[in-house]
Design a protein around this nucleic acid. Sequence first.
DNA 1: CGAGCCCTTGAATCCTGTCAAATGCAGTGG
DNA 2: CCACTGCATTTGACAGGATTCAAGGGCTCG
Lengths: 241, 241
Amino acid sequence: MCADKCRLRELDIFKPNTAQELEFMQSIKVRNTRFPAGKVIVSERASAAQLYTLLDGWAIRHKTLKNGRRQILNIMFPGDLIGLQQNLLDESTSNVETITEVELCELDRNKLWLLYQSFPSLAYDITWICAHEEQIVDDNLLNVGARSAVEKIAMLILHVFKRYRALYPESGKVIPFPLNQQDVADALGLSLAHTNKSLKKLEKLGLHKIQDGKLTIINEKALATVADYFESPITPRPLIC
Amino acid sequence: MCADKCRLRELDIFKPNTAQELEFMQSIKVRNTRFPAGKVIVSERASAAQLYTLLDGWAIRHKTLKNGRRQILNIMFPGDLIGLQQNLLDESTSNVETITEVELCELDRNKLWLLYQSFPSLAYDITWICAHEEQIVDDNLLNVGARSAVEKIAMLILHVFKRYRALYPESGKVIPFPLNQQDVADALGLSLAHTNKSLKKLEKLGLHKIQDGKLTIINEKALATVADYFESPITPRPLIC
DNA sequence: CGAGCCCTTGAATCCTGTCAAATGCAGTGG
DNA sequence: CCACTGCATTTGACAGGATTCAAGGGCTCG
């Protein structure tokens, strides 16, 4: 099972839960699942969505327009809830798709209301996670709406690096980077060609390197300057699993 | 007081509450307040934020960059919670500013946790409101990232019209429109000049008219086509007040 | 009547998108 | 072992949409 021996829970960033909370989360858990890369977990066409916590791997949440353009809303990291919006609002308007192989903790969506009744602390945590995800979408909207192409790229790179390092705080300037350039383009509202050119520009300036699915941060300070990046403190966050 | 004789509650769009819920909301309410247009209610510099429900009038939530560019994240209508994100995450990263005179219901933020303990139904409602606001930011991000200037304008106009009409479902194609062109530009990630030109283009095509702070929808169908607008059903929504 | 704010418009610039083609690489099958 | 395909990356030329800069008009208000 997940709740008591979930490896994710061992990470420092997640705040601890009481034995009772752990026991309850255990009881609403259906199973652990694995999905390969490129699989759609939540579809905007589906009426009802499952509820998951992402345990390992990367996913993206996105929308598409009739003209074919895709907008990535946020990148999902371990600890993020998948399908919460869809379950609460009972209409799914965004898709969630894996970009690496992932491990998921599947929760029984029919017991969500039971959770609110039984464990207000966990209910609070879920609201926290929802507000936190909104904050990330806020940042992405600011990024897409108010920065130039090069600034957007710098911001995305730093954002991904910071979020990954908040989870896995080894020192080191190299992290996995499973996004391809089309993904980056769709996250930033840029064309593929121009994304490539902006990416190369930063790379030639010696700020970063992307190669073989790995991102190397070479000049973090310069990236932060280009992006007008604002450091926010890393605080413990709740985990529903 | 607000909870039992709040006029907003009379609107059809808000789902009813039990007597006990109403009584509790009454107890966490501090007072009703009015603010003039152009007043900052929540600042990203402030450490702690108050918690309000917007009862009447319009507000915007926005962020700014060092280069001076401002991004409006969402437009706030009556029924929206103000300051929830700031209270939950205890860091404020966006500003909320009135664009008309507003009436607010001020809630005691120190009793938020009591609400979660005492009324799971209301806790669920708050999460619903949070998820709903995120959904709107999602839509705005899609808009800013994946549409052309004219399409963005058409979408914004329709979005505002639909949200206003969901609250006040009189028939009629004219609604208040307190946003100036700089606001529209900052909501869509466009320059002021180009916003003006795109606005005029749609107006000359006979799709809408904006004059004296009023928006008239002339050709709703054409607007929807231009914007690739997807109609979503209007469902009852919770109100915390 | 002048100041300030918002809306409007034009011209020039430049950033970004579109179109197109070439490269490199991994996987497939002959 | 080697064509061949498919996919992601890279690059160039060009067009076009959006920004910038600038100036003028209409309006309210002191």
